[in-house]
């Protein structure tokens, strides 16, 4: 943030100290480290926390703790909260436009379009929370006297390596589908452009989203990623923002407890998101129960 408008006033602007968002709180990195974040032209914007593996560990603990409540919340309730995120963002639109413009070197109007798309993405996923089960689950007509129902369930704690370039729309596009279905997330923000992500934490904290559902870390994916990919209490990993070398390394580490892995793919974050980012982190549970006849009538020999 730079000083501005010195012509009309000599007032110094108040800098913002960017902090992590973990377990609903805003801690500094336990390591005490920060790194410089610059805009696309190399101008200093702020210091961001340089998270450590211990921060990642704490984030997993918070995400696990939040999982029971969030996955157990009604889909309607989750939808209300995701929509609330959109409402909160709309109110802070100007801030995010500025941050995105700085982060991605976009013009105001292009940054505005990105922020609008990100807000709309929350609305899109808010609407999905109570529909995805009807799309991917259902009754199965088994050949026997049984009721058989398949339902999708969140896989658990998901590590998200957020896109490096698309610091906000890309970020929202990977977080929202993870939590819409009831997972909780540990997010490694874009390394070079983490500020929109850290600000998003502030929005999430005021959107009725329970603490720990989304945890946002800034720093190096290459530093934290391997610990999160190998973490035995993490159930899945989205490699959206990992380069091919890191993605391969993390996928290998993820095999230790057979995490669900969403590999990096071609990224057009403005395209129709479809459902695959949701289904990638859903389990299918199939429950059987006998039906049988009403009474002990004529069972054949």
């Amino acid at each position: 943030m730079s000083e501005t408008s010195s012509s009309s006033s000599t007032r110094l602007s108040v800098f913002k100290t960017y902090k992590l968002y973990v377990g609903g709180k805003f801690p500094r990195s336990e390591s005490g480290r920060v790194y410089e974040v610059s805009d696309s032209k190399g101008k200093w914007l702020a210091n961001a926390p340089l998270s450590s593996r211990k921060d990642a560990r704490d984030a997993v603990v918070a995400a696990r703790k939040a999982f029971g409540g969030w996955s157990g919340a009604t889909a309607y309730n989750r939808g209300q909260i995701l929509y609330r995120v959109a409402e909160m963002l709309e109110g802070r639109r100007e801030q995010f436009v500025r941050e995105v413009a700085d982060a991605e070197g976009l013009s105001k109007s292009k940054a505005g379009a990105v922020v609008d798309a990100a807000i709309d993405r929350w609305v899109w996923y808010a609407g999905w929370t109570d529909k995805i089960a009807q799309i991917v689950g259902g009754a199965n007509p088994v050949a026997g006297p049984y009721f058989n129902l398949s339902t999708p369930e969140p896989t658990g704690v998901v590590t998200v390596v957020a896109p490096q370039e698309s610091s906000f729309l890309g970020l929202v596009s990977v977080i929202a589908p993870v939590i819409a279905t009831g997972n909780t997330a540990v997010v490694i923000a874009s390394e070079k452009a983490p500020l929109p992500a850290l600000s998003l934490g502030e929005v999430l904290a005021t959107s009725d989203l329970p603490g720990g559902v989304v945890n946002i870390l800034s720093g190096k994916a290459a530093e934290m990623g391997p610990h999160l990919a190998a973490h035995q209490d993490v159930n899945a990993i989205d490699l959206a923002g990992a380069d091919s070398v890191l993605a391969t390394e993390l996928e290998i580490a993820a095999a230790d407890n057979l995490k669900r892995v969403l590999r990096p793919g071609a990224a057009d974050w403005s395209a129709d998101p479809g459902t695959h980012r949701m289904t990638a982190f859903l389990e299918t549970k199939t429950v059987w129960h006998p039906t049988g006849s009403l009474g002990a009538s004529g069972s054949a020999y």
């Binding site: 006297p145 006849s293 002990a296 069972s299 020999y301």
Partner: peptide, 14 residues
Amino acid sequence: IDPVGLEARAASLG
């Protein structure tokens, strides 16, 4: 008594 399980057991012995 679960009727389906009961009938399945009887059928299996059959």
